[in-house]
Every structure is written in structure tokens, then in C-alpha cells.
Design a protein around this nucleic acid. Structure first.
Lengths: 205, 205
DNA sequence: CTCCCTGTCAACCGTTCGGTGGACGCCCGG
DNA sequence: CCGGGCGTCCACCGAACGGTTGACAGGGAG
């Protein structure tokens, strides 16, 4: 019997997962948590075999909760989320998730992924696997520096370079340097495209 | 007994809703649909009292499905969605939805909203109501014209005005006119802010 | 029928941006 | 200890952008 803990801030989703998993004879839901913090605490208390973890949550998010859980436990973590942005997927895998499923998964997908995770295997939804391959194939993993993100966030609000410089207590020249470096990393050539692609990759906001 | 139809493209969510609603003695789930088209068909076939409708779906979305349903049926539609962008809320209410709930709603919230909708009342989640008030209080409802959206979408991709003009077979001057009008409507003064606020209001992509 | 919105185009001007080519100090890791 | 990434700064140039004003045609609403 595989013991599963559900971590999701939506009661509806928890209820749905519970219903689907309890219908499988070899799976049992031993607990639910509505936040990342609660998920960590419940894992410590219940020592489940597998945690089904939502990514987007208020407070401690799924990635953070996964990292914490794996520091003290052999519990497997399967990430279950609605969206599949490149950055989310990469962060989850880096944090040590044993699987990445989307919420449109069927009962069979879910159960299969949980059993695989319990056996120590890693399962990715097909579309997720493709995106991950794209990430890995790209040799230079393009992470924006904290400062670059800071500048881009202000650009997204429509600030001019001079305004951004004043806001961050740096000169306009420095702002431009940050932006040009960000352009290179994002493979774009203007600020608007930089903002949209950074958002698409989950690097902003 | 209030007869409810579930329309959501996520099996997990449908399962969760079914579980929560079946626990209420006066509610019964008479059917499920995984798409807008199917939702319309099922409503026609089953004539439920209330449809619980997800907004974001592939194909015919929740707003479109709601509009169609209300043309031929007295069925009440309660919108249930994860996100609350201003444009989504307004579109759903304009389409004739009797309620707007978020997926973090509790079982009591859900059941209460369905009962209210069945009685002919309108229920909005508190945060949704606030946003709607903001929309209505703003006298000039700022809807971007189709052409303006088209231009903004290309701006979001980093195209210059001249490139956009060539792509849309208009001159750069016209592109600038569209953009300036969009700036006015969105209350911004540069293209980047225009794109981000348009996205935030759900007017883009 | 008239008004307003939309879509189209034009010219001009000042400001901002993007590109280039530097420069310096810091810190981390090989 | 030395390379490289990061954060900071400077100067210059051409291109792009934002603001303004003005214009005209078509269509839907009052």
C-alpha cells in the first residue's frame, strides 16, 4: 500500500485527487495540506511514501516545500500543476522532484506516476519532458541575475532607463548595461520582447 | 433536489467537485463535460438547474459556452475559475453568468453559490465583487479595438513599428496612431507598459 | 442625418533606446 | 592565482520611439 500526502491550496483539487486515488486499491491518502508549510509539517509527521505537490501556492511554494522535504526525508515528491512554464519545470526538477504532471492528467496517469515514483523512478508528462529536453539542450542555462530581474521588472512597469537608475540608485548607463546583458541572455533585441519572454519563462513576477 | 452539470477540462477538478457536491443532500451531479462544446450539448440533453463552468478551456471557452447555453435554456451558469483577471470577470458577467467563484472556494461556498444561483440570485466571490465594482466605477470601459490588440501583440514580440506596419500592410504612421490610442486607453505612456497592463487585464494572448 | 469611433495616413520634433567599446573592482571557483 | 561572471560607470552615435496636430473615409448609434 502506497501512502500519499496531498499538498494543494485548492480544496476542490484535494477532494478530486483523494477521490481518484482512493479508487485505486494499492494507494491510500494519509493526509492533506493546504500550503507548503503545512505540507512540510505533515510529511514530517506522517512520513508518506509519495507527496503530490502543487507548485503555485501562497507562502512557501511547491519548489521550496520540495527542497525542504528532501532534506530530511526519503519521501518522493511528484509535482502536479496546471501550467508548464520552462522555469517552473526546471526549478522543480532541480529541487529533486520525482515527477511532473499536469492537472489534466487522467486517473491512470496519476496512479501510474505515483507508483513509478514510489519505485524510485522519475515520470514526466510528455509535453513536460519535451520542454525539459529543450532546456538541457541549451548549453548555457540562461539565468538572469538578481539585478537584471530587478531592472526588467521596472521596465515592465513602463519606466525609462533614467527613472530606473534613480529608483535603484545607479546611473542610466548601468541600467543599459544590465538590459543589454539581459537581452543577450533572452535572445531578444528590445526591452518589450525581453519583458514578455522573461515572463513566459517564469523569470518575472 | 438541485441538478448540477460540471464543465471543466480537468478530470481532477471534476472529480473534486462531484465529491464535494454529492456530499450535500439537496444537490446532485447529473453530468460532466470536459469542454465547452460538450457542456453546451450536455445542457441541452440534461437540462440541469445549474451549470458549474470553468472559464479557461481549449476550444469553446467558458464565456462562449455560457452565452450559447443562455440562448436556449433557463439554466443558471456559475463560473468557477482559478484566476481572476478583470477582463475575465467582466466577460463572464456580461455573458450572463449568475455567479463567479474561485477554485479556492470551500465546500460551503460552493454549495451556497449553487443554491443561490438556483434561486435566481447572483453570487460573486468577495475579491471578484471588488474588482467588478472597480470596472463599473470606471466610466469609460476601455476595450481595445481589434486592430489595437493586433498591433500590441506584435509589440509584445519585440517588433518595431516599421516591422509591424509591414506585417499588417499599413504604414508606420498608422501603427503609431493605434499605439497612441491604446496608450490612452490603458493609461500608460510607453509600449512596454502597454503590453504588460494589457496582459494583466487579460486583453492580450 | 449627424456624431463619434475606428482605421488609415502624414510631417515634425525632442527624447529615449540600442549598440559599441571600453573601464574598474569584487568575488567565486578552478 | 587567474579567469569569468557580476555590478558599476562613461561616451558616442544612429535608430527607434513618443507626442502632437491634422486630415479623411467608413460605419454604427442616437
Amino acid at each position: 500500500m502506497i501512502r500519499v500526502l496531498l499538498v494543494d491550496d485548492h480544496p476542490v483539487v484535494r477532494e478530486g485527487l483523494r477521490g481518484m486515488l482512493e479508487a485505486e486499491p494499492d494507494l491510500t491518502v494519509v493526509g492533506e495540506a493546504g500550503s507548503g508549510e503545512e505540507g512540510v509539517a505533515q510529511t514530517r509527521a506522517l512520513a508518506p511514501d509519495v507527496v503530490l505537490m502543487d507548485l503555485r501556492m501562497r507562502g512557501l511554494d511547491g519548489v521550496g516545500a520540495t527542497e525542504r522535504i528532501l532534506t530530511f526525508s526519503a519521501t518522493k515528491v511528484v509535482v502536479l500543476t496546471t501550467y508548464e512554464t520552462d522555469a517552473d519545470i526546471l526549478r522543480a526538477v532541480e529541487a529533486g522532484a520525482s515527477g511532473y504532471l499536469l492537472k489534466d492528467a487522467s486517473r491512470a496517469d496519476l496512479a501510474g506516476a505515483i507508483r513509478a515514483a514510489a519505485r524510485g523512478e522519475t515520470v514526466l508528462a510528455p509535453s513536460v519532458a519535451g520542454r525539459l529536453v529543450n532546456q538541457v539542450r541549451r548549453p548555457v542555462q540562461q539565468t538572469l541575475s538578481a539585478r537584471e530581474v530587478e531592472v526588467l521588472a521596472l521596465v515592465a512597469k513602463g519606466r525609462t532607463n533614467a527613472e530606473i537608475g534613480r529608483a535603484l540608485h545607479i546611473t542610466e548607463a548601468t541600467v543599459k548595461t544590465h538590459l543589454l546583458r539581459a537581452f543577450g541572455k533572452l535572445e531578444v533585441s528590445d526591452r518589450t520582447a525581453a519583458v514578455t519572454t522573461a515572463m513566459a519563462r517564469g523569470l518575472l513576477s
